[in-house]
Amino acid sequence: MPESGRSAGAPLPELLEVGTIAKPHGLKGEVIVALLTDREDRLAAGSVLQTDRGPLTVVEAHPHQHRWRVRFEGFATREDVDPLHGLVLRAEPVDDPDVWFVHELIGLPVVLTDGTEVGTCTAIIDNPAHDLVELDDGRLVPLPFVVDVGDVIEIDPPEGLLDLA
């Protein structure tokens, strides 16, 4: 990642993956973006997203069939955007104490509200109804049962949810 504009030795912020350019759309330099966040403001006009090919500045974005139709500054034709296909879009984390990032949850112990440890978070699984916390033994806990996140993931599941068959 280029370090332009930063003093020597200054740490780079950890960028989060926020979307992927799925394909070109039409003939006027638009692309289809699969957004990986519910923060639609990541595609607000003027937003700068980082890629392996350098920064891209959003000119405009519109919802399009469960994804987004996006135009970036400096791209006016389909030929201009063809090379962007498959690029991962990254942005700096949002400074919000109520936001949990998946990479911060992986590896945390999972405990009941009384402190009983029930496992370790190995993954967060995207699910249409609710995302799921996957435990190291394969059990799944829907995100609505997560009470708090800190040094551990505290859950309050209904009786029987964690029983193994």
Rank of each mutant, 00 (worst) to 15 (best):
P2R: 15
P2S: 15
S4Q: 07
A8Y: 07
A8I: 03
A8H: 07
G9S: 11
G9V: 03
G9C: 11
A10Q: 13
P11N: 06
P13M: 12
P13D: 10
E14F: 02
E14M: 04
L15Y: 14
L16S: 07
L16E: 13
E17P: 06
V18H: 05
V18K: 10
V18Y: 12
G19A: 12
I21G: 07
K23N: 03
P24Y: 13
H25L: 12
G26K: 10
G26V: 02
G29W: 00
G29H: 08
V31K: 13
V31N: 05
V31I: 14
L35F: 08
L36W: 12
T37P: 04
T37Q: 04
D38H: 15
E40W: 11
E40I: 10
D41P: 02
R42A: 11
A44M: 07
A44P: 01
G46K: 04
S47L: 07
S47K: 13
T51I: 04
T51A: 15
G54E: 14
G54R: 14
P55C: 07
P55A: 11
L56E: 12
T57F: 11
V58G: 11
V58E: 15
V59I: 13
E60S: 12
E60D: 10
P63S: 06
H64I: 04
Q65F: 13
H66P: 00
R67W: 04
W68N: 03
V70M: 15
R71H: 14
F72H: 08
A76C: 08
A76Y: 03
R78G: 09
R78T: 09
E79W: 03
E79T: 11
V81Q: 01
D82W: 07
D82H: 09
D82R: 14
P83T: 10
P83I: 01
L84R: 06
G86Y: 10
L87I: 09
V88G: 14
V88I: 13
V88F: 08
L89V: 10
A91W: 05
E92V: 15
E92P: 13
P93K: 05
V94Q: 11
D95E: 15
D98Y: 14
W100P: 01
W100T: 00
F101P: 00
F101D: 07
F101R: 05
V102R: 10
L105R: 08
L108M: 08
L108P: 00
L108T: 04
V110W: 01
V110D: 01
V111G: 00
V111D: 06
T113L: 09
D114K: 03
E117N: 13
V118E: 10
T120R: 08
C121F: 01
I125N: 13
I125Y: 09
I125Q: 14
H130K: 01
V133A: 09
L135R: 05
L135H: 02
D136N: 14
D136A: 03
D137I: 02
R139C: 07
P142M: 05
L143D: 01
P144H: 06
F145S: 04
V147S: 11
D148V: 01
D148K: 04
V149Q: 13
D151P: 08
V152Y: 00
V152P: 00
V152K: 10
I155F: 11
I155R: 08
P157N: 08
P158S: 02
P158F: 13
E159S: 10
L161Q: 04
L161N: 11
